[in-house]
Simulated scan of single mutants.
Amino acid sequence: MRTAVVCALLCAATLPGPSAAASAPQAPPAVSVTVAVTDGRDDAESGKRLDYRITVHNMGPTEVRGARIEQDMPATTTSATAPGGTVEGHDVGEQKVVWRADLPAHDIQVFTASAVLGARTGPTATAAPGTLRAAATVCVYVGDSYTPTACSGDLDDLPETHAEAGGGDGWMWWAGAAAAAALFGPGVVRAVRRRRAAQPH
């Protein structure tokens, strides 16, 4: 009898109790989310409004609660709007839109935003000959993570204006020509007069 009791106590000690099983860390469910963004065009210009359509697809079998969808607007954006979202930052080049939403399993949700572009204020590296780009980026974040689960971008060509540069170059050419005439004009006139005086009459 004593042996049976000791064996029972030893066996019970080796088995995990209910509290140990409950406190074991649970692996987070796998998240499979995609995002796509487009404004339906390939080019833009200052003063025009770009209307973006953001499509978020939860392809996994588990609902994603409290997802954060963030869109960085193009660098020359002067104003932005987003139904159901919050516009953060009001200075040019700092505007961002944030949505928070639950993403049901196997569900697709669509968000919309608009941006009005302003003029470029300084030189920027060109991404293609004769053009610049208006770039918008959208990322989806799950929980409190700072690492995006999915990202997508949209690029529009901004035609580069050469009117100001051409006008400036023309003005500089005329200024140079006037300066050259002021410097060398009197000498040319004197040379012509001497040549005429030296010719026999």
Score class of each variant (00 low, 15 high):
residue 44 A to L: 12
residue 45 E to P: 00
residue 45 E to K: 08
residue 45 E to A: 11
residue 46 S to E: 14
residue 48 K to R: 15
residue 50 L to I: 11
residue 51 D to Q: 13
residue 52 Y to H: 13
residue 53 R to F: 05
residue 54 I to L: 10
residue 59 M to A: 15
residue 61 P to Y: 13
residue 62 T to V: 07
residue 62 T to W: 06
residue 62 T to D: 09
residue 65 R to W: 06
residue 69 I to L: 10
residue 70 E to I: 08
residue 73 M to W: 03
residue 74 P to N: 10
residue 75 A to E: 12
residue 76 T to D: 12
residue 76 T to M: 09
residue 77 T to E: 12
residue 79 S to G: 05
residue 83 P to G: 11
residue 83 P to M: 12
residue 85 G to I: 04
residue 86 T to L: 07
residue 91 D to H: 05
residue 91 D to A: 14
residue 91 D to K: 09
residue 92 V to I: 14
residue 93 G to Q: 02
residue 94 E to V: 02
residue 94 E to S: 08
residue 95 Q to V: 05
residue 95 Q to K: 09
residue 96 K to D: 03
residue 97 V to S: 02
residue 98 V to A: 12
residue 98 V to F: 07
residue 104 P to W: 12
residue 105 A to N: 12
residue 105 A to H: 06
residue 106 H to D: 14
residue 110 V to K: 09
residue 110 V to T: 14
residue 111 F to S: 08
residue 111 F to K: 10
residue 112 T to P: 00
residue 115 A to I: 04
residue 116 V to M: 06
residue 119 A to M: 09
residue 121 T to Y: 01
residue 121 T to G: 15
residue 122 G to T: 10
residue 122 G to A: 15
residue 123 P to W: 01
residue 124 T to H: 13
residue 125 A to M: 07
residue 125 A to H: 04
residue 127 A to W: 07
residue 131 T to V: 08
residue 132 L to G: 13
residue 134 A to K: 06
residue 136 A to Q: 07
residue 136 A to V: 06
residue 136 A to S: 15
residue 138 V to F: 01
residue 139 C to A: 15
residue 139 C to F: 06
residue 141 Y to G: 02
residue 142 V to I: 13
residue 142 V to T: 11
residue 143 G to R: 11
residue 144 D to E: 07
residue 149 T to L: 05
residue 149 T to V: 06
residue 151 C to T: 06
residue 151 C to F: 04
residue 151 C to A: 08
residue 151 C to R: 04
residue 156 D to A: 14
residue 159 P to H: 03
residue 164 E to D: 13
residue 165 A to H: 03
residue 167 G to L: 04
residue 171 W to D: 04
residue 172 M to E: 03
residue 175 A to V: 04
residue 175 A to Y: 00
residue 175 A to F: 02
residue 178 A to E: 03
residue 180 A to Q: 01
residue 182 A to L: 08
residue 183 L to P: 01
residue 183 L to H: 00
residue 183 L to Y: 01
residue 183 L to K: 00
residue 183 L to A: 07
residue 183 L to D: 00
residue 185 G to F: 02
